[in-house]
Nucleic acid binder design. Structure first.
Lengths: 232, 232
DNA sequence: TGTCGTCAAGAGCAGTGCTCTCGTTTTTTG
DNA sequence: CAAAAAACGAGAGCACTGCTCTTGACGACA
């Protein structure tokens, strides 16, 4: 009973769940989150609509699965981008991570909107989403940890870190931002904030009639944010 | 016929449109955009559901009205914040504008999500939204124009402005960023991007388990972004 | 006064999320 | 191995949505 060889029913159940999420993700990528319909998914699977509730008791549960997948996808993209860089090329690693996020968002706009757009009404993120949601942030933090260890973070110190942030910084230093001083952590978070702000603006049309070559502008912003955060 | 005294019918029509948007905005602020129902609004007005289509032929039209209102509200908040500052206190004006955006967003999360969250599926922003949508950006640009005229913008020049941005910069310089050099415009846009990125992160839960005192952290980020953009 | 456009109302259509019941099949238990 | 339990697909049904169409009344304007 504890063995890995599951019963036939469990196997087909897992396969059906996979198929449902795949179809749902395809619908999501064309119709958007609000246009996702359990009935339409069931129809495409040849099921009657009520049968799908055996696998996802609620539409929110299906959305949660898609959200987790999306977080993992962008997390993997960032991890892969980082892995392809020389360890000591901190600016290069930063830039590749930023590019990975932007590229993934442009390639999967609706999935990106699912995790960085408006939270769906009444939707409460379950605990299962916390870990996948922090994968990208952990990678950024690791970059700062490495840069700090190499002694290449240069902070201006022209804007005093608020005392209220000391506690958060201490907690973060114990887990992800190992050894990074308060100001480095805070500026890292601000730079990370900028990255998603820029992707949001580009994706949601805020740069219309303002910026023509978004890629070049993003490159400049990301690079200057790396400097802002003290990376050298 | 051209006088301001409209016919009785036109007056009651305008009044009804106002009442509908008011009720809709109230529903929006409690249920969120996707939970907004034309039928529920009609019900609350004592109308039959079909009657409401005389005033808003489609749900998107109602949403458009709310979106325009929201843009105008944040635009007014920014304008009011700026008006309360000494003209030569550029950092102070920048900070007050940032605070105004954040405060408005926290006070009206669903309306904020309407304009800075996921675009509703299939929704195409009509031209009526362009002007209200750019009010806040114009105020930020004006700040940089004033600072430039006062000669107080100090740019590091450590990150070369991409050539592809020259055209955009020239166009922007003719209208809103009068006299501001390319790098100033670009850094201003990046800083402005950060502001909304930070508000998004705070509002949509990205800072959960990361930042405790969001106000203090926002203050630090906004101030350091002012320096980043060259304001002194 | 009569015509024409505007209006509220009602019925109706197609679609949604979700629930409940009912046989059937599979798994687990005694 | 047989009986009890659990999981399953199908179908009907409920309450709700956006939106359309028709009908009859009312107000504006000639």
């Amino acid at each position: 009973m504890m063995t890995a060889s599951r019963t036939a029913r469990e196997r087909v159940r897992a396969e059906l769940i996979r198929e449902i999420t795949d179809i749902a993700r395809r619908h999501l990528s064309t119709e958007g989150a609000a246009g996702l319909s359990l009935r339409a998914v069931a129809r495409e699977m040849g099921m009657v609509s009520s049968a799908i509730y055996r696998y996802f008791p609620t539409k929110d549960d299906l959305l949660t699965a898609l959200i987790i997948d999306a977080y993992n996808a962008v997390g993997e993209a960032v991890e892969h981008a980082d892995a392809g860089c020389a360890r000591e090329d901190f600016i290069g690693r930063w830039m590749e991570m930023c590019r990975a996020i932007r590229a993934w968002a442009l390639a999967h706009p609706h999935e990106y909107a699912l995790i960085h757009g408006t939270p769906v009404p009444g939707y409460q993120a379950p605990d299962d989403t916390i870990d996948p949601a922090s994968r990208d942030g952990i990678m950024f933090a690791r970059l700062f940890t490495d840069a700090q260890a190499a002694g290449t973070i240069q902070l201006p110190g022209d804007t005093p870190v608020p005392a209220q942030f000391h506690g958060d910084a201490a907690a973060l230093r114990e887990t992800v931002f190992v050894g990074v001083p308060d100001e480095g952590i805070l500026r890292g978070i601000h730079a990370w904030t900028w990255v998603y702000g820029a992707v949001n603006f580009e994706l949601f049309g805020m740069y219309n009639n303002v910026i023509t070559d978004r890629a070049a502008t993003f490159e400049h912003g990301a690079l200057s944010m790396a400097h802002y955060a003290g990376l050298r």
